[in-house]
Amino acid sequence: MTRAGGEATVRVLVVEDDDNLRFAVRTELAGAGLAVTQAADLATADAALTGEDFDCVVFDRMLPDGDAIHYVHGRRQQGWAVPVLLLTARDSLADIVAGFEHGGDDYLVKPFSVAEMTARVLTLCRRAGTGRPSVLRHGDLEMDCARRQVRRAGVLLGLTAKEFAVLEYLLTRPEQAVARGELIEHCWDSSTDPMSNVVDVVVRRLRGKLREPELIHTVRGRGYRLAS
Rank of each mutant, 00 (worst) to 15 (best):
R61N: 11
A48P: 06
D65R: 11
Y169T: 05
V15N: 10
V201W: 12
I69T: 14
D67N: 15
R211T: 10
K162V: 15
A39Y: 14
T9Y: 08
R205M: 03
M195K: 14
C187I: 08
L124Q: 13
L29N: 03
L215Q: 09
M143E: 00
R148S: 10
A32W: 14
R61D: 01
R225I: 03
G74S: 06
R222N: 00
G129T: 01
L171H: 06
E116M: 13
C187G: 03
R75F: 06
L226W: 11
P174H: 01
P83Y: 06
H70L: 14
L87W: 09
L93H: 09
S228E: 14
D140K: 08
G103V: 11
L122A: 01
R75I: 09
A94Y: 09
P174G: 00
V114A: 00
R222G: 00
G33F: 11
L42W: 05
T123C: 01
L122V: 02
L210R: 05
Q77N: 09
A179N: 05
G5N: 12
L170H: 05
L210I: 03
D41V: 02
L170I: 05
L159R: 03
D19P: 15
E101G: 08
G208R: 12
V202W: 02
P64Q: 04
V155I: 15
L108I: 14
L87K: 08
P133Y: 00
A45D: 07
L171G: 01
R26G: 06
A89Q: 08
Y107N: 07
E101D: 14
F23W: 15
G223Y: 10
E7Q: 12
T118R: 15
R211N: 07
R207Q: 11
G221R: 10
L206D: 02
P194M: 03
A227L: 13
R126S: 01
R75M: 15
L124G: 03
G74M: 12
S134V: 11
A8F: 06
E116H: 13
F164M: 13
L167H: 05
A89F: 12
L13Q: 04
D140P: 11
L63S: 04
R22A: 12
